[in-house]
Computed example of a mutant assay.
Amino acid sequence: MDAIIKHPALRAFDPETKRPTREEAEEAVRTLIAYMGDDPEREGLVDTPKRVVNAYAELYGGYKQDANAILERVFDDVGGYKDIVLVQDIPFFSHCEHHMVPFVGKVHVAYYPSGGVVGLSKIGRVVDVFARRLQTQEHLTESIAEAIDKVLAPRGLAVMIEAEHMCMAMRGIRKSGVSTTTTRFTGLFEDPAEQVRFITLVRGVQR
């Protein structure tokens, strides 16, 4: 089993053989600083390459995490519960793969258990695994749904992401406060009535 679900473009990428050294990464930051028109050797910037590489290790730490392992433990003793489990308003930040600037928002996940249920905090951790990578919001939505569907095999799954993209707010048309919504529905949630129920639960609590 492919333990760590990857972006399709990464299937053939081997980070162990193609990843640059830390020194090369820091030098790349110095090059970018100089390209922008500043002096990478001035006092305020001399340690910036080191800080940027440290920050990137945290911001993109999802590449080294295993979403499947997070979801492996399931609690079977749920007293016969078969209705919706909804975890909503999970905050996240990610980075657009087109401009490498942030997009931030909330994730809502609901599923109908097929057997046991997973610890509620695990859903939030799965969101973080995929959010801390370069991607589009659409792919983030699919990645979260794919991981949960693959491991838990629920009778139905709903994933909704609402986010604001800084590549739209900080550059380009520079329109702030614009929200983008993406969804993914499987199983029982392919029924429009179930989708309405899910959205009503999410919107109702948000009010």
Rank of each mutant, 00 (worst) to 15 (best):
E41P: 04
E43I: 10
G44I: 11
G44Q: 11
L45R: 12
L45A: 12
V46G: 09
D47P: 01
T48S: 15
P49K: 15
K50C: 11
K50V: 15
V52Y: 02
V53K: 01
N54I: 05
Y56I: 15
Y56T: 07
A57M: 07
E58H: 14
E58R: 15
E58L: 13
L59N: 04
L59Q: 04
L59H: 09
L59M: 15
L59E: 06
Y60S: 05
G61M: 09
G61L: 08
G62F: 09
G62D: 07
G62A: 10
G62K: 05
Y63D: 04
Q65H: 09
D66K: 04
D66Q: 03
A67D: 03
N68V: 08
N68A: 13
I70F: 06
E72R: 13
E72C: 07
V74P: 02
V74Q: 10
V74Y: 01
F75L: 12
D76I: 01
V78S: 10
G79R: 11
G80S: 03
Y81V: 06
Y81N: 10
D83I: 00
I84A: 09
I84W: 13
I84D: 12
V85P: 01
V85N: 05
D89H: 15
D89W: 10
F92P: 00
F93W: 12
F93A: 12
S94H: 03
S94M: 06
C96Y: 06
E97P: 06
E97Q: 14
E97R: 09
V101C: 08
P102Q: 05
P102F: 02
F103T: 02
F103V: 00
F103P: 00
F103I: 01
V104D: 09
V104C: 11
G105N: 07
G105Q: 05
G105P: 04
G105S: 10
G105K: 02
K106L: 06
K106Y: 09
K106D: 05
V107I: 13
H108Y: 04
H108G: 00
H108W: 00
V109A: 13
A110D: 09
A110Y: 00
A110G: 14
A110T: 05
Y112D: 00
P113G: 06
G115E: 14
G115A: 14
G115K: 12
G116P: 11
G116W: 15
G119P: 08
L120H: 13
L120M: 14
S121H: 03
S121N: 11
K122M: 05
K122S: 03
K122T: 01
G124D: 00
G124L: 02
G124W: 03
G124E: 02
R125N: 05
R125T: 06
V127D: 00
V127Q: 00
V127T: 02
D128H: 07
F130Q: 01
A131I: 05
R133E: 10
Q135R: 13
T136G: 09
Q137T: 02
E138R: 08
H139F: 15
H139W: 15
L140A: 02
L140N: 00
T141S: 05
T141V: 11
E142V: 15
E142M: 13
E142H: 13
S143H: 05
